[in-house]
Design a protein around this nucleic acid. Sequence first.
DNA 1: TTATTACCCTATCGATTTAATAGAGTAAGC
DNA 2: GCTTACTCTATTAAATCGATAGGGTAATAA
Lengths: 136, 136
Amino acid sequence: MLSKKTKYGLKALTFLASQKGRAPVQISEIAKHENISQKFLESILLTLRKTGILGSKKGKGGGYYLIKDPKDIPMTTVMRVLEGPIAMVPCVSLNFYEKCEDCPDEASCSVHKLMLQVRDSTLEVFKNNTLADLVP
Amino acid sequence: MLSKKTKYGLKALTFLASQKGRAPVQISEIAKHENISQKFLESILLTLRKTGILGSKKGKGGGYYLIKDPKDIPMTTVMRVLEGPIAMVPCVSLNFYEKCEDCPDEASCSVHKLMLQVRDSTLEVFKNNTLADLVP
DNA sequence: TTATTACCCTATCGATTTAATAGAGTAAGC
DNA sequence: GCTTACTCTATTAAATCGATAGGGTAATAA
């Protein structure tokens, strides 16, 4: 299940990508346009800024803006920042790998085998989509 | 994230599929072999029985067994029973569809567009795998 | 310089879900 | 008729999620 955090983050990013220029957009404007709780959105945009996807400008006329061109922002990056691991189990995760404590042998684990395929196919989708592809 | 319920369920099913015959296997044996809490496993096997994937036999020499041949049990069925919707958002779910209350227009929603692709590719994996494919 | 604007951060909270446990009930077989 | 093993209900602790509140701080315009 996709978290609201990710959902809202994607919507906000798409909204920013759809802007004419790269001028800062206020949180309140994004929140209003996308029907998102403003305070909740604040925390989401903050993490997006900390990971280098967004920039921000304080004071009058300030707000958030995209640092890079939307077509140079792959969905793999965005999803990992917002949702975390793309894999459904840690033992098949590329960036967040963890060994299962049950499960003596990974190579002969049926769950592992299946989830590896799911991860690869999902990854393929995220690799083939940039933020620019999400703009209607 | 895959729930433990699904993980345990898949392991139990794979174990049953790997048996020589179709003789009932006791819960305790499955639990021991797969390192699963027996009581928790009980409830999982129960739902698998109620949905027609497993059969059970009471009394001495009883236990759970597969009703169909493993190669006739697609992963789509198993995953939907254990994990629920395959889609990451209800608005792109085939079997558990729900409209988003925020989001005025589904067709122009960026999240919808992306998650539709993820659903299709994941579905493809589950369609191409039966329980028989999981047995090592 | 000063007031304003808007970002930044911490803490909290209720609701929900998850994983696990306990215990009693019931049906089948020897 | 007694044992075995499945069946069901209830409870619980822990974790996570979504949201809210409130204050702090930095940058900009006037």
